[in-house]
Amino acid sequence: MWTTIEQIFPYAIIYTIPLLITALGGLFSERSGVVNIGLEGLMVVGAFAGAFTSFKLQESYANEGWVPWVGLLVAVLAGVLFSLLHAFASINLSADQVISGTAINMIAGAITIFMARNMTGSGNIRVSGFSPFDMDWKWLPLSDIPIIGPLIFTKTYWTTWLILLILALSSFLLYKTAFGLRLRACGEHPHAAEAAGVNVKRMRYIGVMISGAFSGLGGAIIIMTYAGEFTGSVAGLGFLALAALIFGQWRPLGVLAATLFFGIATTVANVSQVIPSLAVIPPIVLKVFPYAVTLLALIVFSKSSRAPKAAGEPYDVGKR
């Protein structure tokens, strides 16, 4: 049993990380008052931008360690640029945010494959991303720590630690700084925030752009860690991140717990066939499990939901 957990857990973390950063991005957007159902599309854009950049750079700088990092950076920029479409529609034009987000998803899915096909014909872009490593340095043998060593510090990626750092910083930013307070105020009561001198539209732009940056990063991390290839979709992870955001009740640590749950549940379902103790459970049960639990969680939290009150509503200055 323990060896099974030891085997599965590093993969669960690898799978969790893109989900976590994307959900965290969604948290910024929704906390500022803009529902962003376009996370899926923003991830696809990031995945494409990252894969495209690495692919081009690899032609002249094969096997250079910095190439995937540049890919991540470009993915972040692409995510921000693309999220502006959603920000413009939902903040300036008071468009229905769910529809605008759906349009983002459709545009991202279609245009990235269109461009990828122009490049490679098949529409798939193979890149060599990061390689996993064990944190077993002589001066700091972290992977030798009992219990958590094999779970957390083996087969790990630097991106995992980068994302956890971003999570910590985001938590600080949201709850310990004036900026965080203002951002959250815009999602709860924009008119009060405006009266207190906060520029609601600007805060919402920032919220949506952060969600674009983080989703782009998440999409690219998928390519650079476990996928290794851009195929035109991120298999519904953006929607799952959205569910994790609700499951985690719009709080950073809640989101961490929710995405880790999804990561573990999905990894277990994926490997169940090769692990004897799990193979007795019908695979459909394991596959459906995370989604069914989410539905249950939605019901349980429905009474005490902490959804940002103004999320999804266009900000109308004249409406009090």
């Binding site: 413009f88 468009a95 605008s100 759906t102 349009a103 459709m106 545009i107 279609a110 494959i113």
Partner: peptide, 13 residues
């Protein structure tokens, strides 16, 4: 698909 998606964005806005 791209044309359809862009149409929808314009319909939404």
């Amino acid at each position: 698909d791209s044309i359809i998606a862009i149409i929808i964005y314009f319909a939404a806005t």
